[in-house]
Design a protein around this nucleic acid. Structure first.
Lengths: 235, 235
DNA sequence: CCAAAAGTGTTATACGTACACCCATGA
DNA sequence: TCATGGGTGTACGTATAACACTTTTGG
């Protein structure tokens, strides 16, 4: 049996993270300018190599932390990519993760560190290797998952307004939802706590702020609700 | 940049397939007795190594074919598993796939080849490495996916009866559904064509056979229907 | 006072669910 | 003739979708 192992070719294993961010307006992606090499205007997903003594989840978490200083956020395995020609330098299998983070809370921390930059989903630069394909699959997964799991809140700041959540879902699905039906549905989850404060500055009237009921959120985080108005047309 | 590649540790990459089968009665898993080595009663998922010039999908397909002679069936990537201690012999990252196949059509072909054996989901033997964990995640994925995509039909033979599909869904979800509501729902997809023949032998009355409308199935295979009566309690 | 966004209610329809009886047939 | 599994219909309640006006307030 052991000989069977010896004969096999080994392979580099990389981890790449698709980091989604939301700033209250737009859905964004965090990209880094690729290292110190030739590529001029090529941007890249956050990535790194698997080390000998860590699991895939640990490696993804470590790399995210090293490059952004962010930790403890939503980070889930997406897919493994292993086309033999995906990395022209050397055969590499990449395990992609996707992360959800709210832009505002981490803005300065992130930008300062590694020349990372938030790009609007609609307006991405040229990307390394198969990173665009990874992003495409990540947005599909995000849509799929957000339809039934309340993971949208992972992208919201501590305090947020209903119109902001509406914006987020509209950004995720690239379509418009009826605000009355939407707010009724979101509130019916019972996951939101209405605060006394209002968000001022954006609109003249101001919108009430809400916060997540973390108790309920943890319990319900893998429950199965229908979060979007029209499930047809998905995926 | 190239030096960055050289420093990195390489890793074996394995592919393992969770092969679900249905025989009209029970949901089953196809397992093989592990090679020519010490383990006495340890069974294993179908697996093999990634070769230098193939993609992950290709490798999974090749390995499935080599071990079962089966090709062209539903085969989808599940997850990558990379715990450093998952394979005690050597650090290995395993990319798991899950496959759906109907037992009857391939029964003899499969059993003859590589000492493979179908096990009822409820009654699995001791398994290699983290294979049980893989199976657990695969059944979750199957439940998740079958709830909204008509992949259940991948497990059915060419011709099948409504009670058989009901059996399948009950096996997948481990619960009972009302046969009247279920058949109404399945038929309302418009994916089934009723044949003139009946399945005889099992029941005295005999049940009408149906076949998939492959045209519609291809179109709708990534549509988004609610296939199971009660979406709560899932995942 | 006006523009811009927030907030709120009703109604019609579709869908999900619960439920029970008759049918066909082989033994 | 009877036991077994196959097949069908209805009524009720809930969830969804479509829809428009009033409120607040900064400029």
């Amino acid at each position: 049996m052991l000989e069977l192992y010896k004969q096999q070719t080994k392979c580099l294993v990389a981890l790449d993270s698709i980091i989604f961010g939301f700033d209250g307006e737009e859905l964004k992606l965090l990209l880094v300018k690729r290292g110190v090499q030739t590529d001029h205007d090529t941007w890249s997903l956050m990535g790194g190599w698997l080390k000998p003594n860590e699991s895939l989840d640990q490696a993804a978490e470590r790399i995210l932390f090293e490059l952004t200083g962010v930790t403890g956020i939503f980070l889930e395995q997406l897919n493994a990519f292993g086309d033999p020609s995906r990395d022209p330098v050397e055969r590499t299998v990449a395990v992609a993760y996707y992360a959800l983070v709210n832009v505002k809370d981490y803005e300065t921390k992130i930008s300062d560190t590694h020349h990372a930059q938030w790009f609007p989903m609609q307006d991405l630069p040229e990307l390394l290797f198969d990173h665009r394909e990874m992003i495409k699959i990540a947005i599909e997964r995000l849509r799929y998952k957000a339809a039934f799991h309340p993971i949208g809140f992972e992208l919201m700041p501590e305090k947020f307004t209903i119109p902001q959540i509406l914006n987020l879902y509209e950004a995720i699905y690239g379509s418009n939802f009826d605000k009355r039906n939407f707010s009724r549905k979101i509130l019916s989850t019972g996951l939101l706590i209405k605060l006394k404060e209002k968000q001022k500055g954006f609109s003249k009237k101001g919108a009430f702020l809400y916060t997540l009921d973390n108790e309920k959120y943890k319990k319900h985080s893998d429950s199965f609700l229908n979060f979007i108005p029209n499930p047809e047309g998905l995926v």
